[in-house]
């Protein structure tokens, strides 16, 4: 199994044992004795996840989860806890945790949860990558090209677009060709697909 797992637990014995278990299963592991140490030192270069103890002095696991979710590249969280109390497990799951394991847990449970979290991260990363690519391309368009883009994906003909924008059909044709090139697509279908991706994330430009 591949992936980079960051483990945060204030109990040194538990922290070491979880690190060993995850390494024995093939993961790359980074261990942190406190949420503060994690925030200060951890960087998320490779796809992976965070295994987080729910109750730690100082910053609680739920607070760290919130901080992680707000980061630009949020990694999935697998919670572990010494007690299985319902309110905090509900809060953790609502906030998007992949799983909530009550100590002591079997290795298979932990490894399965970590594995699914890593895969989730990998998928999320590729979506984010494509999104940022498309968003970058959209950002490179001139205002006029964006106006043309919005109307092209609406299915309008060059003539209609020219009428709406109050310009010549020939000019629209030029804008359209330049826009298609900048967006890295060579068909209307490709353009609509890219448009759908940014629309899904709510980042589509509004005109």
């Amino acid at each position: 199994m591949e992936g980079c797992v960051s483990v945060v637990d204030d109990d040194a014995l538990v922290l070491r044992s979880l690190g060993r278990l995850l390494r024995s299963a093939g993961f790359t592991v980074r261990t942190y004795p406190s949420p503060q140490a994690f925030l200060a030192q951890d960087s998320d270069t490779a796809p992976g996840c965070v295994v987080l103890d729910l109750s730690m002095p100082g910053l609680s696991g739920l607070e760290l989860q919130r901080a992680l979710a707000a980061s630009p590249d949020p990694r999935p969280v697998v919670f572990i806890s010494g007690r299985g109390d319902v309110p905090s497990s509900v809060a953790a799951m609502k906030a998007g945790a992949v799983d909530f394991l009550v100590k002591p847990f079997d290795e298979l449970l932990l490894l399965a949860a970590v594995q699914s979290a890593v895969e989730k991260d990998r998928a999320a990363r590729s979506v984010r990558q494509e999104l940022s690519l498309i968003a970058g391309r959209v950002a490179a368009l001139t205002p006029r090209e964006r106006e043309v883009l919005a109307r092209v994906v609406d299915g309008k003909l060059n003539k209609q677009i020219a009428a709406e924008l109050g310009t010549a059909e020939k000019t629209v044709k030029v804008h359209r060709a330049r826009m298609m090139r900048k967006m890295g697509v060579d068909s209307l279908a490709g353009l609509v697909r890219a448009w759908t991706v940014i629309r899904q994330t709510g980042a589509a430009p509004q005109y």
Partner: peptide
């Protein structure tokens, strides 16, 4: 639970 978790995970890692 803390030491029990450590014991179990250590033993399973060794395995």
């Amino acid at each position: 639970n803390q030491p029990l978790t450590a014991i179990l995970s250590n033993a399973q890692a060794a395995q």
